[in-house]
Design a binder for these strands. Structure first.
Length: 270
DNA sequence: AACCAGGGGTACC
DNA sequence: GGTACCCATGGT
């Protein structure tokens, strides 16, 4: 079964390489494969404005339509960008087809805890290793689901160390224990305003503002939030003379940020 | 083979 | 409240 999405603003490859998700890969036969919600999804770009998703219509409506944020008009977001902002305009053009995903909060929190001082490639590797070691099987693939908070919370630090997460190991364990115990209710937090959500996430040991902002943007679709990492720091310093343009970008500042992140990194992958 | 990576905690002042 | 310094591991 398959569902087709007809839009000019949906490019699986751009999304795969965008640095917001870490479990999307290109298969040898040119399909894009991702694991989320304990399931495997394959998709393929069939033309300049058509993407095929291999799933049932019910799964599309319940999971993948929200996941890919398909009810948001990215052409309108691009059109709303401030005029005369050359670097932003270029960033929007270069990564046309990018979308900000609505990923699962738990996985997103963990992935960005692990992202500290790592390249995208290294993040992918350690996320996948964590899944291989502690995740449940997924139908139709040898790849595993992202481990549940309960599973990770039940591990000793020594057991988690086998995934070679380095100094991030206790951070991940603290996140797992807080979520598994209900002390940090990631589902309930979806109803909270941005500042409450941010503060709650920052209670986890090893989660600072930057990681929390990534979770707000890439899981909770708080599109106004701009994670300031080394690359965005570089954008501000090099392209905007040290004065952040983001406060003037309005409700989609975080979306613009992601296009600029990609441009500043200079292309895809790595 | 050094150097550095989508940072954050801690110890100072 | 600001600033060095360390953290553990893998790519380049």
């Amino acid at each position: 079964m398959a569902v087709w999405v007809d839009t000019d603003d949906f490019d699986p490859r751009i999304i795969m390489d965008s640095g917001q998700c870490f479990r999307m890969v290109e298969t040898p036969d040119g399909l894009f494969e991702l694991i989320a919600f304990g399931q495997r999804l394959t998709l393929q770009k069939e033309g300049p404005r058509r993407v095929r998703l291999d799933c049932a219509p019910e799964a599309f409506d319940r999971l993948w339509r929200p996941y890919f944020d398909l009810d948001t008009d990215y052409a309108a977001i691009a059109a709303a960008a401030p005029q005369g902002d050359h670097y932003l305009a270029k960033a929007l053009a270069v990564s046309h087809g990018l979308r900000i995903l609505r990923q699962e909060p738990w996985e997103t929190l963990c992935a960005f805890i692990l992202s500290q001082r790592k390249h995208l490639k290294a993040i992918r590797a350690c996320v996948e290793a964590l899944c291989d070691r502690f995740g449940e099987p997924v139908p139709g693939t040898a790849r595993k689901a992202f481990p549940t908070p309960q599973t990770l919370a039940a591990q000793s630090e020594a057991q988690l160390r086998t995934c070679a997460l380095g100094y991030r190991t206790p951070y991940l364990l603290d996140a797992a224990r807080r979520v598994a115990s209900g002390q940090l209710d990631l589902a309930a937090l979806a109803a909270q305003p941005d500042d409450m959500l941010l503060a709650a996430l920052c209670t986890v040991h090893g989660v600072g503002v930057k990681v929390a902002e990534c979770v707000l943007l890439f899981a909770y679709a708080r599109h106004a939030h701009v994670p300031i990492d080394v690359w965005i720091r570089r954008v501000i310093d090099l392209r905007y003379g040290g004065v952040s343009p983001f406060p003037g970008y309005g409700p989609y500042a975080g979306v613009y940020q992601q296009y600029m992140f990609l441009l500043e990194k200079g292309g895809l992958d790595s």
